[in-house]
Design a protein around this nucleic acid. Structure first.
Lengths: 334, 334
DNA sequence: TTGTATGCGTTATCAC
DNA sequence: GTGATAACGCATACAA
């Protein structure tokens, strides 16, 4: 390890023959510095390979430029596409993202937020889990902004971004009925995530309003395998359903594969299927899944613009976005 | 914005009735502090909501604890699973990951590395693209460690982690021939990524050694859609191939879907298919793709252990890992 | 516009 | 084991 330290503004100043404040000003947007001085500094910096130390800058300005993304199951299609959208928009706004991986354990999100505090993140965006109120209060008290995505939480301070899950569920119920389906089912995981439960409740309520009951089946985590298991459970019943709304596309893919390859069923002729998220795989020709599109780019835009905005009052704020129904061929008609 | 600054060690010291050095020592592992003092400090810190400022600590120690992950197309299955593995292992080693999204533009990776330098990242891990030598030299000169994953680059300084791509390709060629295939094809994208090209060259060479020619077709980016297009190109030929090695699973999924649904072909009866990466979808029952498993956890372990290791000589180092062949049912026999 | 001086929160060095 | 003090690299109030 050559352990030669990074080059500092001091060294640049000496080489350029100016004061170190001139160097600082050159790299501070909106500071007054003459073009001549500025150029001398820039040349010296380039020659020396100088880069502003954002650690020190953050210390001074009390603004690190860091935004924490707190998320579990990063490898999942929907999650990773949301991460992509967020990091991109954050970069465009001059922020940088820290990625913290949480697991299902209890204090996992709290630990992540503590890490965000240690690095003096300007904001944290929570995609998974729900932190303890004490720790979010701590974040807010320290001037850190908080965004909760699909957490459906109504506490004061953070920005909450949610979708119209119940509404979407109602639209699916209608579509099923219009397709001639009468035995409705809902396939869910046991995660109990707010948005997942909202879809479930919305679907059951909408069906009830249409005079239909819903068979609700839940199993395991929110993934492909669980979709298969739920299919097993639903399709071996005497009163086999003729329409299934799956809480996520991943569940739907598992369900469809089991229905076709294990139960030799034809979709949508024998059974209609709908999903949620519109992951890339939903469009693959093996699935052609009718589903709701998570407006990831819009979610990211809402989150980031609120984060960087200097709204003096980051008071209680809540956004509800619309999930478009993407018609493919897993529901008859359309 | 309450703009009440974060609580500092100074305040904790006052509340606990000790010096700020005592506070510092309490939060520095391996420092000598009496249990009594330590407890007083801990209590005061808890009461005040104190968290060590890692920006300042990084400034002092010249070690930020930050590791930069530089990657494009985050939303892709293989990429996101690698990111998951890396962030997890980094967290386990007390590091935190910064995620920088690059695009296909030229200086994109260089820009990302500059960002890594500004935040004084202890290391950068590059999953996409290849930075300019001048900028990697700058990183290395500043004591930053560099890891290149599947970049197949042989420069001095960084750790290079690669797979035995050519070897894997040869195994596929053998498997195809053993399955009775004679008209081999290779489906690639136009990305020209080192590992993708290594697979292509390895496959062509191995086939040649077996006395067979290979039809090579390349198209677009490395995704599902390109797989479909390549299928279009390959399956409309007079000398339609009876075995196709796709450079990645995503290409393979697109290829399989097109072969089945557009050309009504049966896999593996009429055509054998193999992929690379072993993404989650490869195991889905619609594909059951025979493929090579990227050892993502092992890759992450190699990278992280090298990063945190205090090997005084981070000299030229290169690791070549083995990709296991996962047999499913897209190749006859097995 | 420019330079000087001070402080940000932390750790390391040194006496005690 | 403990407390004072000097850095770390930067931004800024202030004087020039």
């Amino acid at each position: 390890m050559s352990q030669k330290l990074f080059v500092s503004a001091q060294e640049v100043a000496e080489k350029a023959g100016v004061s170190r404040s001139a160097v600082s000003r050159t790299f501070t947007s909106g500071a007054s510095v003459s073009p001549k001085t500025r150029q001398k500094v820039l040349d010296a910096a380039e020659a020396l390979g100088y880069h502003v130390n954002h650690l020190a800058r953050g210390l001074m300005r009390n603004e690190s430029g860091i935004v924490c993304l707190i998320v579990s199951e990063i490898g999942t299609p929907y999650r990773s596409s949301l991460i992509r959208a967020l990091t991109q928009q954050l970069q465009n706004s001059g922020k940088i993202s820290m990625l913290i991986n949480t697991d299902r354990s209890d204090g996992s999100v709290d630990l992540a937020l503590r890490q965000a505090i240690r690095y003096r993140a300007d904001a944290s965006i929570i995609l998974s889990g729900l932190p303890d109120k004490s720790i979010t209060d701590l974040c807010l008290k320290n001037g850190q902004r908080l965004v909760l995505i699909n957490r459906d939480d109504d506490r004061e301070g953070p920005l909450s971004i949610n979708l119209d899950d119940a509404d979407a569920a109602a639209r699916v119920a209608t579509a099923f009925v219009r397709a001639g389906c009468r035995k409705l089912a809902f396939a869910n995981s046991q995660a109990g995530t707010p948005s997942l439960m909202a879809r479930e409740r919305g679907f059951v309520a909408a069906a009830k309003a249409l005079g239909l009951d819903v068979i609700v089946e839940r199993f395991g985590h929110t993934g492909y395998e669980s979709g298969r298991v739920v299919a097993q459970q639903l399709l071996t019943r005497k009163d086999r359903p003729d329409a299934v709304f799956c809480a996520t596309d991943l569940l739907a893919c598992g369900f469809m594969d089991a229905a076709r390859h294990q139960f030799s069923m034809s979709i949508p002729d024998q059974i209609c299927v709908a999903g949620f998220d519109d992951i890339e795989q939903a469009a693959w020709s093996s699935y052609q899944l009718t589903t709701f599109a998570q407006p990831v780019d819009m979610i990211a835009r809402e989150a980031v613009s609120w984060l960087v905005g200097d709204s003096a009052q980051p008071e209680h704020h809540s956004v509800r976005l619309h999930a478009d129904l993407v018609w493919r061929s897993s529901i008859r008609g359309g």
